[in-house]
Simulated scan of single mutants.
Amino acid sequence: MKIIDSHVHLVQYIAGTGSGGELRSIGNGDAIYASGEVVPQMIPPMFGGEQVTPEQILKIMDENEVEKAVLLQGNYYGFQNIYTHEAVKRYPDRFVGAASYDPFSRNKDKILKHLFEELSFKIVKFEVSTGSGLMSNHHTLPLDGEIMEEAYSYADEKGLVFVIDIGKCGSESWQVEALRRAILNHPNMKFVVCHLLAVSTTDEDKLKWGLDLLTLPNVWFDLASLPHICGPDTYPYENARRSIQIGKDIVGAERLLFGTDIPSVLKRDTYKNYVNFLMDSNLLNEQEKKKIFYDNACNVFF
Rank of each mutant, 00 (worst) to 15 (best):
N137K: 05
N137V: 03
P142I: 00
D144E: 09
D144H: 15
G145L: 08
I147R: 08
M148F: 15
M148I: 10
E149Q: 13
E149S: 15
E150D: 13
E150M: 13
E150Q: 14
Y152S: 08
Y152D: 07
Y154N: 04
A155G: 04
A155E: 02
A155Q: 04
E157F: 13
K158H: 10
K158A: 11
K158G: 05
G159F: 12
L160R: 02
F162G: 02
D165L: 06
G167H: 01
W174T: 01
Q175D: 05
V176D: 01
E177C: 04
A178V: 00
L179N: 08
L184W: 00
H186K: 03
N188Q: 09
V193G: 01
C194Y: 05
C194F: 08
H195Q: 00
L196H: 02
L197C: 14
T201Q: 14
D203Q: 12
D203I: 05
E204H: 07
D205C: 05
L213H: 12
P217Q: 00
N218M: 06
V219K: 12
F221R: 00
A224M: 02
S225K: 08
S225R: 07
L226F: 15
L226T: 01
I229K: 09
C230R: 01
G231V: 10
P232W: 12
Y235S: 02
N239G: 14
A240Q: 03
R241S: 05
R242I: 03
R242N: 15
S243V: 13
I244H: 02
Q245F: 09
Q245L: 14
G247A: 09
K248Q: 10
D249S: 11
D249E: 14
D249Q: 11
E254I: 09
R255F: 09
L257Y: 04
L257D: 03
G259F: 04
G259E: 05
I262P: 08
P263W: 12
S264Q: 07
L266W: 06
L266R: 01
D269G: 10
T270H: 12
T270F: 03
Y274E: 10
N276S: 15
